[in-house]
Design a protein around this nucleic acid. Sequence first.
DNA 1: GTGAAAGCGCTAACAA
DNA 2: TTGTTAGCGCTTTCAC
Lengths: 340, 340
Amino acid sequence: MSADDQATPALRVTIADVASAAGVSRATATRAMKGEGRFAEETRERILEVAERLGYVPNTMAAELAAGRTGTVGLMLRDASNPAYGLLFSRLQDEAHRRGLDLVTVTIGADEQGTKQVGALHRLLGMRVAGLIVATGGITGAQLEPFADQVPILRAGRVEDSARIHTAHYDDEKHGRMLADHVIALGHRHVVVLGGSPEASYPEHLRAMAMRETLIEAEVAVTMISAGARPEEGVDEALKAVRAGATAVMCASDYRQLAVMRASRALGLRVPDDLSVTGCDGILPGADLLGLTTVRIPVEAVASAAVETMQRLLTSGESDAVMRQAFTGELVPGTTARPI
Amino acid sequence: MSADDQATPALRVTIADVASAAGVSRATATRAMKGEGRFAEETRERILEVAERLGYVPNTMAAELAAGRTGTVGLMLRDASNPAYGLLFSRLQDEAHRRGLDLVTVTIGADEQGTKQVGALHRLLGMRVAGLIVATGGITGAQLEPFADQVPILRAGRVEDSARIHTAHYDDEKHGRMLADHVIALGHRHVVVLGGSPEASYPEHLRAMAMRETLIEAEVAVTMISAGARPEEGVDEALKAVRAGATAVMCASDYRQLAVMRASRALGLRVPDDLSVTGCDGILPGADLLGLTTVRIPVEAVASAAVETMQRLLTSGESDAVMRQAFTGELVPGTTARPI
DNA sequence: GTGAAAGCGCTAACAA
DNA sequence: TTGTTAGCGCTTTCAC
């Protein structure tokens, strides 16, 4: 039997084609293909072989529509060009793979206003995903909340204000404190804190506020600069403060730290001889070569907690208590900050 | 528990609910919602309002199943923890947004063997995506080809051997040549080329071979090292060659370059005083501060060509000629390579 | 301008 | 063990 008019797989092949080619009914074909229910092993092999030969690819939409459930978890991601998010994305995927969860991802440009974000949310909800992991600050808890009793929702990476949404996040405040303690221990008495405004980056804001508070408690003079999203913003102002006597610039992210180092170099200021600089994230490949003083955020821990929690929510009826898990990173002393 | 579930949006709301609440038929509701076909403007407003109030979220699976087509393009991505892929991902998303295409992404761990990769491919195909952009080397042209006449397929980032698959890729060979020319111009006469094996990274392999060829043509002595995927591999061997007289190490990626710099530092070798080092990618934030001598790959151009081409394939009947577009990056002289 | 009805491809009882 | 029969939620002619 080698009359192969079916040499090329066609996506139009339906289970009905497979069934009739194998001489069985659609129901039998379905059961055999997924190995559930009762069927003769011999039949199964024949069906599988026919399916293979015809290039049958099950239509997921139809399957899930009929079954009334989805096997996939939706992931809303922030711009992956930031290595911190890229790595989180990567680790979430790995962990999901390991646990047998399928992830489907949509991302939203950081610059978009609410509209697109909600559009992306609706696209995922429209797919009737079984769960939702949100790894972007662009969408608020309030926007998510209405759907929280339809599908388990977990925010990954940053804290969540809504009481009905689970989280696995970085302990941004603690990170801010760790860095501030380090700078204090180095003996700095006048420090610039350069962070994003709450709207630009809430995590950065949390870090910056924690730094500020910790520094003030230690009676260190603080110059606060709240900048926009672009890392270059506020750098000039920070260096102005340095010329006015500050000895260290604490940045709320590695990106800003790099911007400060760049600008310092351009002005002939040496790091750490003329000023100390710290960041936060510790994800950049090459951060070690630059000697960045920073905190390495616990991406792996957050990713695995996020996926693990999601899986639990999916299996055990979704009536669990709301999970809120914070993870602490590690101080990387580096060489961009030195004793005064 | 109160019996008031009208207030909370429910994913279970179907268009039938909306229709009956608005006192129309499902057909009318559909038309009004998408603004196609004939309907009274007044009716439309009423329906929209009801839908909003009920928290209606259209079931995408049902819609696309019924309509027999999908509005989304599938993206297969390689591990986004590599900033080069993270950035490509990000730019592809941006460009797709701009052009009104919806992207749904699946990624595959780099370590997986064919099985998972094919699984991911089938998941996308199962969703009956309208097109496919493949940005991972983990899946071969041969595996893709069978589906090429069902759905337009475009490979982004690296060259494709299959004659039926469109591409928008980096000109890896040219990049290799550009870097080699630079090193030759600096006067190096004995150079180590450190790249990945073809299996570990095909783009790296192409770059390394082009470097080798260019160097040899200029009668430069070349020591080739073909390493595995991990950037540390082959570094010791490269430095051994340096001690044996080589004056430059040309790496096929920035990652390897960083590894070489790290190891050099550990051994007390200074870059570029004791040896020159080059890389390739130029994507790392902070690459400028490290002064990496590299080629900045044209991620933006590839991303926008990829999406543009896909959109064209989607609109104009998919019988277009196969597109093959190569993009060249820019040499970044840096300070890690200096004249001998 | 609107509604009735016939599916899209698949799954899941329930019979046979 | 296998086939029959309803749908899943939505779109889309084609009458009204």
